[in-house]
Amino acid sequence: MGLIIWLIVIQIAVILHEGAHYLVARMQGAKVSAFSVGMGPIIAKFKAAGTEWRLSALPIGGYVLIDDLGPESLEGQSKSRLTPWGKIAVLFAGPLSNWLLAILLMAGIFSSQGVPQTDYSKAEIHRVLPGSAAEKDGIKEGDLLVAIDGKPLPEQETVDGEPRMGYMKLQDAIRSKEPNTLTFQRGNTTYDVKLSFEWKAGARYGVEYSPKQNVKPVPNYFAALGEAWNQSIKIVPQALQSFAKGITQTFTAPLSPSSEVAGPVASAQAAGALAREGGLWGVLTFATLVNMSLAIFNLIPIPGLDGGRILLVVIQLLMRRPLQPAHEAMINFTGFVFLMVFMMLVFLGDIIRVIP
């Protein structure tokens, strides 16, 4: 089930992405040689509106061939129909389409399910291990840690120059050699636990926890759109940081599963889990994540991605002359090889992750 959901969501996202490239190019009179749904060998095709429409064998991804985006159009015998700004518009249209779809989907989820909000000043207990020190202390699933030694947990603090969320102070208390008093909230009552747990390497207090999750209702879809827009802006720096960390992990520790980047196996598992837990809303949540990730990732200025190709156009604008076709082709090819190696390593890491 997860694999089917993953394939459908990915395919819709890619068709939308490539379709946006196609539409913006055609609006400017550019020639589009081919539009393929899927990759690999062509199993069916027909020609219409000057474009060869293809159905390819592998139902993963797709592509559009826009003649005037190729490096040969810069110094070829025929003048490109696309200006530099026109090329930027074509390249930007793909990620923008995924971004807008993600916002629309997110707004639909928010208007129906409410806006999830994280309260980092409270640690919510999700599980207490049987026979553990936490169980002996009377801690139960659903309890909220609200204070340590009478001091409320902060939303955020700075530790060694790095920002750190307040709920993580529970870990500090558990590992502390000094006795601490934990204040928990259970329903409308509070109770204190005098922590006498002696931590050492490998020891476990016996709780699984995370920051408190709240849900903020919204009155209508338009209000949800505003919330979705705000959330999409907040996601960008976090996503870029995750991509950068994931790429670094992938190349510095090859074949080790990355905690920041998921390949097709992990993504299919996530799609299945979201569908089981949330039904249709879980699937829409997965589609939102895929489209947002596709939009942000494609705008990273790596040659071969839309962001990298936009950067090349900007460089040519600043230089006031086009790059040599062979140079531009080599830059894009190098980026393509980098991406293929990266994707292969992520996929192999995925396989290793699921091997018992």
Score class of each variant (00 low, 15 high):
Gln11Ile: 06
Leu16Asn: 08
Ala20His: 12
Leu23Asn: 05
Leu23Asp: 02
Met27Gly: 03
Gly29Asp: 07
Ser36Thr: 14
Ala49Pro: 00
Trp53Pro: 05
Leu58Gly: 04
Pro59Trp: 11
Ile60Met: 14
Gly61Glu: 12
Gly62Cys: 04
Ile66Phe: 12
Leu82Met: 06
Thr83Leu: 08
Gly86Cys: 08
Lys87Thr: 10
Phe92Thr: 06
Ser97Ile: 01
Asn98Ala: 03
Trp99Ile: 00
Leu100Arg: 07
Gly108Glu: 11
Gly108Tyr: 14
Gly108Asp: 10
Ile109Lys: 04
Tyr120Asn: 00
Ser121Pro: 01
Ala123Val: 01
His126Lys: 15
Gly131Thr: 11
Ser132Asn: 04
Ser132Tyr: 11
Glu135Ile: 06
Asp137Glu: 13
Gly138Ser: 08
Gly142Ile: 03
Leu144Ala: 00
Glu155Ser: 13
Gln156Asn: 09
Glu157Gln: 15
Glu157His: 14
Thr158Pro: 01
Gly161Arg: 04
Gly161Phe: 02
Pro163Gly: 03
Gly166Met: 07
Leu170Asp: 01
Leu170Trp: 03
Gln171His: 04
Gln171Phe: 07
Tyr191Ile: 10
Asp192Tyr: 06
Val193Ile: 04
Lys194Arg: 15
Leu195Glu: 11
Phe197Gln: 07
Trp199Lys: 04
Tyr205Pro: 00
Pro211Glu: 05
Val215Ser: 12
Val218His: 06
Asn220Arg: 13
Gly226Arg: 13
Trp229Leu: 14
Asn230Cys: 00
Ile235Gln: 12
Ala239Gln: 09
Lys245Cys: 00
Glu260His: 08
Gly263Cys: 00
Ser267Phe: 10
Gln269His: 14
Trp281Phe: 15
Gly282Leu: 13
Val290Lys: 10
Asn298Trp: 10
Ile300Ala: 02
Gly308Ser: 12
Arg309Asp: 10
Gln316Leu: 11
Pro322Glu: 02
Gln324Tyr: 09
Ala329Ile: 04
Val337Trp: 01
Val341Pro: 07
Phe342Thr: 14
Met343Asp: 05
Met344Lys: 02
Asp350Tyr: 00
Ile351Asp: 01
Ile355Val: 12
